[in-house]
Amino acid sequence: MARLADGDRSAFAAVYQALWPLLRSFVARQLPPSESEDVAQEALLKIFARASDFDPERDAMSWALAIASFDVRTARKRSVRRREQLSAEALAIRSEFAEEELISRDLEAAAVDVLGTLRPSDIETLRCIASGTRPPIPGATFRKRAQRALKRLKLAWRAKHGAD
């Protein structure tokens, strides 16, 4: 490393061969396999980028491992942040669903409330419309009944809730 810091390119291959397996195993011991390869490569490139700044008085191994440790710490922080973000998103989605469910339950209760004020024949007609079935009566008669039932439902809803 001291030779590389001095600009001796012939030391590159030796440094690379000594450093890469060492960094790989050092990072693999501290991070899950899905992340360790990337982080080890990042650390290796960072070490070569700073090779010219290396002080020959220092121990090369501890210098390189200090850089790798910093990268490991950064990767850990990054994954913790990612996990926190994901759980926050999941929480937001869950609360959105809960709100929708609450609204639909309220609407259902309000609809049952309004339906209770209608005549049984209107309720039967509305049930047929909702389920898509046809009672054994002529089509024109059913259409007329459906029209009347819907009109009454609308009036009842407006009387109870003040809106369509």
């Binding site: 600009g7 590159f12 690379y16 290796l44 070569f48 980028a49 700073r50 090779a51 010219s52 700044d53």
Partner: peptide
């Protein structure tokens, strides 16, 4: 990786 390390080393030398 080796090629990129060599390139990055040269860039680091230039910065230095």
């Amino acid at each position: 990786l080796r090629a990129q390390a060599a390139r990055i080393y040269e860039a680091g030398r230039l910065r230095h």
